[in-house]
Write a protein that binds this DNA or RNA. Structure first.
Length: 549
RNA sequence: GCGCCAGUAGCUCAGCUGGAUAGAGCGUCAGCCUCCGGAGCUGAAGGCCACAGGUUCGACUCCUGUCUGGCGCACCA
């Protein structure tokens, strides 16, 4: 691609002019069209080290540049010292060839062969239906995993959950109380218990499945039953959402195979623990925490390990399984765990890097309908579930809406907008662009997969919207790369909207079918390339690319 | 009180890791149009980038402080 060649040539010239070897050349796409197709700030960056004015440096660089024919049409120096390149028209033909030849692989980098990356997300405990926050995580985590795959990494999607612990016991006790109420006895939900309608459902099902245990006296059996049922329900919801996991990791296994004890033992051996008030503490302040943390409660409080110990043990396990990168997608309400887990790992002295694991924290989701906030669902009671949203607006809209804002931003989920079948709705707008391209082939009875760029003369494409569209198409691989680097799928939804805009504009201005043969052939190739890139971007985000709407 | 995140057009949000005259959609206003799907197209108005300093050739972007909002600061998870 032209960009790569320009980058390489700039690097070569920079070094020949005295820049340090390995200088990083940044290319950007100017938003102002009169500034050309590609621009670099290289001269401004080098001005200081070369001890010359930016425009003078730019002059030297331009004078030394040398490209084979067919790549760059013109080079100019502008503003404070930018170097602007205009690409040769041959490059546009090249774009069509590249895209159509690569097809579903366009934008996908070859496997790097590096160590696998672990992406952990959702990780909901089986205490109730998945809520909208889990939905945002599911969409984000799955898309981030895909982005990493598209940039050549091997990825494991992982779901971690606690199947024991205090919360689960409250769940079991809540179900037990509801069973008792079914039998017409007075029974109160435990303090901090679960109130949702689904608890009543579980109680009914338990009573039916275990007629012998009339009073649900066997709490362990109730626990197993409830956990099993809720896990199944979560799986079903995730499946309906189109998210699949490679590994489901049980917190209880960390106790069973001794890893929790091992972790505590290592801390103690390294001299980072001490006893106080009957509890065992980890001196996390030695690693920058603002206070030390309890790792084993005092006997009066039950003498159990606090949750953060298995959390650390779990991440040691990720490291040992060969994941040199681990990315955790969580709600920002869990941000206090970030430093603690990292510190816990540091205190083990296992050579794990300080920034391990990486976190993508997302802000809260507010569901809006009819201009008002929706807070509750029938089944869960106190919160809106993923299932509610998927049933109401469909899986594609839910996924798209969860991805179209950066994770850092609070997200307003507008149900009315998600339901609109018009261009105001970004999902509709983007998918419609794909349907339109498909429509051209359908109406023209053309086999889209047989369209090639062979023999296409790009010179017949005279409308400005055509070159514009091709340039947007050419940027897709770079967009994927940047989004992956930033762990930010929102950049892809942005790209999609930009591409859809260019595609709609082109479609509106340029007829394909029934034009003169050279024009029709060229435009079929444009439509095909556009269809491919739209489909690839949609697929990458876990969205469907409909042929018609 | 401390920590994390956010604050950009009336609304919802971008802004490519410090670049050129801050963009898009919706809404508003003014036009065009009936074609491979009009669920369209063109144009206009609309901004103290929360505020105040600083860093440098250059700041919406980085640093410091202030204000506002969200989240978190357990021997809960």
């Amino acid at each position: 691609m032209a960009r790569e060649e320009i980058k390489a040539e700039l690097a070569r010239v920079a070094v020949s002019l005295g820049a340090p070897a390995g200088v990083v050349v940044e290319l950007e796409t100017p938003r102002e069209k009169s500034h050309g197709d590609v621009a670099t700030n290289l001269a401004l960056v080098l001005a200081k080290t070369l001890g010359a004015k930016p425009r003078e440096v730019a002059g030297r660089i331009v004078a030394a540049l040398s490209f084979p024919p067919g790549i760059v049409a013109s080079v100019e120096i502008a503003g404070p010292g930018f170097i602007n390149f205009r690409l040769a028209t041959d490059q546009l033909t090249g774009i069509l060839h590249t895209i159509i030849a690569a097809g579903p692989g366009y934008g996908r980098a070859p496997a790097t062969g590096g160590a696998p990356v672990n992406v952990e997300f959702v990780s909901a405990n089986p205490t109730g239906p998945l809520h909208v926050g889990h939905g945002r995580q599911a969409a984000l985590g799955d898309a981030i995993a895909s982005l990493l795959e598209w940039t050549g990494r091997k990825v494991t999607r992982e779901f971690y959950y606690n199947d024991a612990g205090a919360q689960i016991m409250k769940l079991a006790a809540s179900v037990q109380a509801r069973v008792a109420q079914l039998r017409g006895r007075e029974a109160e939900l435990p303090e901090g218990g679960y109130h949702g309608e689904y608890i009543r459902e579980l109680a009914e099902r338990y009573a039916e499945a275990h007629p012998a245990d009339r009073d649900a006296a066997d709490l362990e059996q109730v626990r197993r039953f409830a956990v099993e049922a809720l896990r199944q329900e979560q799986d079903r919801d995730l499946q309906a959402f189109g998210v699949r996991f490679d590994v489901y990791f049980l917190e209880s296994s960390l106790y069973a195979d001794g890893r929790v004890a091992e972790t505590v033992g290592r801390w103690a051996a390294a001299g980072h623990t001490y006893e106080r008030d009957g509890a065992l503490w980890l001196r996390t302040t030695d690693f920058g925490d603002d206070k030390d943390r309890v790792i084993r409660r005092s006997p009066e409080k039950g003498g159990e390990y606090t949750y953060f110990v298995p959390d650390v043990a779990y991440h040691v396990g990720k490291w040992r399984r060969g994941f040199t990168r681990a990315i955790n997608v969580q709600g920002s309400d869990h941000h206090s765990t970030v430093t603690r887990v990292r510190i816990g790992l540091q205190a083990l002295d296992l050579g794990i890097p300080p920034g391990y694991p990486e976190y993508v924290l997302h802000q809260m989701v507010t569901v809006m309908k009819g201009g008002e906030e929706v807070r509750i669902s029938k089944r869960a009671g106190s919160y809106v579930t993923v299932q509610d949203l998927v049933e109401e607006v469909g899986r594609d809209a839910v996924r798209y809406f969860f991805l179209m804002r950066k994770a850092d931003s609070h997200l307003q989920f507008d149900i009315d907008l998600a339901l609109k079948r018009s261009e105001e709705n970004p999902v509709f707008y983007v998918q419609m662009a794909h349907a339109r391209m498909s429509g051209v082939f359908r109406v023209g009875s053309v086999d889209a997969s047989a369209v090639t760029a062979e023999g296409v003369d790009i010179a017949v494409l005279t409308d400005p919207s055509e070159a514009e569209l091709l340039k947007v198409l050419a940027r897709f691989p770079e967009s994927v790369e940047r989004a992956a680097e930033a762990l930010d799928p929102q950049r892809i939804t942005n790209y999609l909207e930009e591409l859809a805009r260019a595609a709609h504009l082109w479609y509106h201005r340029c007829r394909v079918l029934g034009e003169s043969p050279p024009v029709e052939r060229a435009r079929l190739a444009v439509a095909r390339a556009t269809q491919i890139v739209l489909a690839n971007a949609l697929t990458l985000l876990g969205l469907s690319a409909p042929e018609r709407m």
